[in-house]
Simulated scan of single mutants.
Amino acid sequence: MKRHLQLKNTIMTNTSPFTLHKQSSECAARRGEVKTRQGIIQTPVFMPVGTQGTVKAVTPENLQEMNAQIILGNTYHLFIRPGHELIESFGGLHKFMNWKGSILTDSGGFQIFSLKELATITEEGAAFKSHLDGSKLFLSPEDAVHVQQSLGSDIMMCLDTCIPFPATKDETIKATDLTTRWANRCRMAHTKRDQLLFGIVQGGMYPELRREHAAALIDIGFDGYAIGGLSVGEDKHLMYDMTEETVPALPKDYPVYLMGVGTPADLVEGVYRGVDMFDCVMPTRNARNGSLFTEKGKISIKNAQYRDDHGPIDENCTCYTCRNYSRAYLRHLFHAREILSSHLNTIHNLHFYLNLMAGIRKAIEEDNFARFRKDFYSKLENE
Rank of each mutant, 00 (worst) to 15 (best):
D170R: 13
L292V: 02
T36F: 07
Q195W: 05
E117C: 12
T122P: 03
D367A: 00
I11S: 09
M12W: 06
A167V: 09
M188K: 15
A363K: 00
S341Q: 11
P82K: 10
L217Y: 09
T105Q: 02
T105M: 06
G290V: 11
I218R: 11
K192Y: 08
Q38W: 09
K95H: 13
D133S: 01
T176L: 12
T263F: 01
D223P: 07
K374N: 00
Y225C: 10
V49I: 14
L230R: 08
N316C: 09
D170I: 15
H146Y: 06
D309E: 14
N14F: 15
G92F: 01
Q52A: 12
V271L: 02
G203C: 08
D235L: 15
S378A: 07
G152H: 03
H21D: 04
W182V: 10
L139R: 02
W182G: 07
F90H: 11
I360R: 00
E208Y: 10
L258R: 03
G260T: 13
L330H: 01
E124G: 13
E315M: 12
V261G: 01
A336D: 14
F293M: 15
A304N: 06
M157T: 07
P60M: 08
A127E: 12
G199D: 08
K129P: 01
E142P: 03
F110T: 02
R211S: 13
T321G: 08
P251S: 13
M66K: 06
R211H: 11
S102D: 05
E142M: 14
F138W: 04
E315C: 12
N62I: 12
P207I: 14
